Amino acid sequence: MSESRQTLEQRRNRNYEETHRQLVERAVGLIGRDGVGSLTVATLARDARMNRSTVYYHFDSREALLSAAKAWFGAKLSEMMVAPGDSQTWLEKAVQFSLGNPELMHEWVMDLVNHTPIQNNFPRWDQLVELASRSPQVARQEDGKGGPTASGALDAELWATVLLASVVMAPRLFRVAVRPDQEIELVSRHYAQLLRRMLQSPQRNAR
């Protein structure tokens, strides 16, 4: 392939990826504004002011579009939950993100509980488990050689599961059924403080 042709191909790929990203983010916005039931390729095309065939080039069905939106949610959430820095900051951002996207969060959780491997929905699961393994509740179980025991490894997975559920589901339950009068920002702050105490983790260094 000539250099000019290769450059053109790279530009086309970048344009495709950028358009794809924009369409997914617009789909997320539509879900947040009008609900999951309103999401179709046609409504997305109208919202993006694009030809419907262009949108179909990226998503051949409503199911593919919704799947991309759920993948976006899972990727964003996983990035927040393993971000470097003070745990109060990333926990608060993760809780607020989940509360700010209730319908998409519900669809994402339903995928999780329908026998889907968690790595498919939460790309940084292994990193979250590794983070959980550093908590005092898990780290104290060592094999005498400086490594975790088998039960400690299991506990790290359990702890990561509890942390994920606490970020995604508990704040939603609290705000809807317990204190619907509280603002998202306040609920997020309070849950982040609680989860930080549970995690008992010092500030983490950037990876």
Score class of each variant (00 low, 15 high):
12 R>K: 12
31 I>G: 00
41 V>M: 04
70 K>E: 09
22 Q>V: 12
27 A>Y: 01
56 Y>C: 00
70 K>S: 12
48 A>F: 10
65 L>H: 08
48 A>S: 06
46 R>D: 14
45 A>S: 05
11 R>P: 15
58 H>D: 06
38 S>G: 05
38 S>R: 03
71 A>W: 04
31 I>L: 03
31 I>D: 05
34 D>M: 13
48 A>G: 01
24 V>E: 02
71 A>F: 09
50 M>E: 12
15 N>A: 15
17 E>R: 11
61 S>D: 03
71 A>G: 10
29 G>I: 05
17 E>P: 01
12 R>A: 14
6 Q>T: 13
21 R>V: 04
70 K>V: 06
62 R>F: 02
60 D>P: 08
52 R>E: 14
8 L>K: 13
63 E>Y: 09
27 A>K: 03
9 E>D: 11
69 A>N: 12
36 V>C: 02
18 E>S: 13
26 R>N: 08
31 I>E: 05
34 D>V: 05
58 H>Y: 08
42 A>Y: 03
31 I>M: 00
29 G>A: 14
22 Q>S: 07
26 R>G: 07
63 E>I: 12
43 T>N: 03
21 R>A: 14
13 N>F: 13
37 G>N: 12
51 N>C: 07
31 I>T: 00
44 L>H: 03
32 G>H: 09
27 A>W: 08
54 T>R: 15
43 T>Q: 01
58 H>C: 00
54 T>I: 04
40 T>C: 00
12 R>V: 08
67 S>A: 14
10 Q>S: 05
40 T>V: 00
41 V>R: 00
50 M>V: 14
34 D>E: 14
65 L>P: 05
40 T>M: 01
63 E>M: 05
19 T>S: 11
57 Y>P: 08
62 R>T: 15
23 L>F: 04
41 V>L: 00
14 R>H: 15
37 G>W: 02
11 R>M: 10
